Computed example of a mutant assay.
Amino acid sequence: MVDKIKFALALLLVAAGVAGFYLLSAQPTVLRVLAVLAGVAAGVAVAWFTEAGRQFAAFASDAITEVKKVVWPTRKETLQTTGIVFAFVVIMAFFLWVTDKSLEWVLYDLVLGWRHS
């Protein structure tokens, strides 16, 4: 129950920041944006201390750990893979064009006889 109240308070703080953006319409844009950022920061701070917030923090920490384990491709590997993809796209485009023109010839010239002058 306490977590639900904290989440409701967090949502209210974010809503207050957004409302402040519109209520401060006569003020400079920097001040209006700061109102939104303050509301969001306060909402995140309150939500952080809920059980779901702690679970999210643990999940984010685990995700960062997993990203650090990823072996990223080198520039050479990336360029080679990109070249292979482009070559495949060109070959498939040519194949589909030939298939389309073949079917067009079969249907319009042979079956229907529409192109005989």
Rank of each mutant, 00 (worst) to 15 (best):
A52S: 12
A52C: 02
A52Y: 07
A52D: 09
A52E: 12
G53K: 00
G53P: 01
G53N: 00
R54A: 09
R54V: 08
R54N: 09
Q55S: 09
F56N: 02
F56K: 03
F56D: 03
F56I: 13
A57D: 09
A57R: 14
A57M: 07
A58K: 12
A58M: 12
A58N: 07
F59V: 05
F59K: 03
F59G: 00
F59D: 01
A60Q: 10
A60N: 06
A60M: 12
A60G: 01
A60L: 14
A60S: 09
S61T: 12
S61W: 06
S61I: 06
D62K: 13
D62Y: 05
D62S: 13
A63F: 15
A63R: 13
A63L: 15
I64F: 03
I64V: 15
I64E: 08
I64P: 00
I64S: 02
T65G: 05
T65L: 15
T65N: 11
T65S: 11
E66N: 06
E66L: 14
E66H: 05
V67C: 03
V67E: 04
V67L: 15
V67P: 00
K68S: 05
K68P: 02
K69G: 07
K69H: 07
K69F: 04
K69V: 09
K69R: 13
K69P: 03
V70Q: 06
V70F: 08
V70T: 06
V71M: 05
V71P: 00
V71A: 11
V71T: 13
W72V: 05
W72H: 02
P73Y: 03
P73W: 04
P73N: 04
P73Q: 04
T74E: 04
T74H: 01
T74I: 07
T74R: 03
R75H: 07
R75F: 10
K76A: 15
K76S: 10
K76V: 15
K76E: 15
K76Y: 08
E77P: 01
E77H: 01
E77L: 04
E77V: 03
T78E: 11
T78G: 02
T78L: 15
T78Q: 10
T78K: 07
T78Y: 08
L79Y: 07
L79K: 06
L79G: 00
L79V: 12
L79S: 03
Q80A: 11
Q80F: 12
Q80H: 06
Q80D: 11
Q80G: 00
Q80S: 08
Q80E: 14
T81D: 12
T81M: 14
T81Y: 13
T81Q: 12
T81P: 01
T81K: 14
